[in-house]
């Protein structure tokens, strides 16, 4: 179990949080094609490496926040950190 950096509460145990998946690109406007919409809706990033994702501090302050987590090492970085 990881500890995660809640921007409001600080470093807390993973069990307090809910992983709500990788960051999606901005919601497409209504003039995109169907296939662009479907792509946005169904095709996630799935990298072996850092994935930027959203966590919800559901058993805490209720804040949604963004981190980068390595999908193999589970190392965590802030979204503005270099993910090399």
């Amino acid at each position: 179990m990881l500890t995660l950096p809640c921007p409001f509460c600080g470093q807390r145990d993973e069990t307090e949080f809910l992983n709500t998946g990788p960051t999606k690109p901005a919601r497409p406007s209504s003039d995109v094609t169907d296939s662009e919409w479907i792509n946005w809706l169904t095709v996630p990033v799935n990298p072996v490496g850092y994935v930027e994702e959203k966590w919800w501090h559901v058993k805490g302050c209720g804040k949604y926040f963004t981190i980068k987590r390595h999908t193999v090492t589970h190392q965590i970085k802030m979204p503005d950190e270099d993910s090399a």
């Binding site: 179990m1 996630p44 987590r69 090492t73 589970h74």
Partner: peptide, 13 residues
């Protein structure tokens, strides 16, 4: 486990 992973793991919770 919740969250994407390529790591064969055992999440304690």
């Amino acid at each position: 486990d919740a969250g994407q992973s390529f790591r064969r793991d055992m999440k304690q919770s």
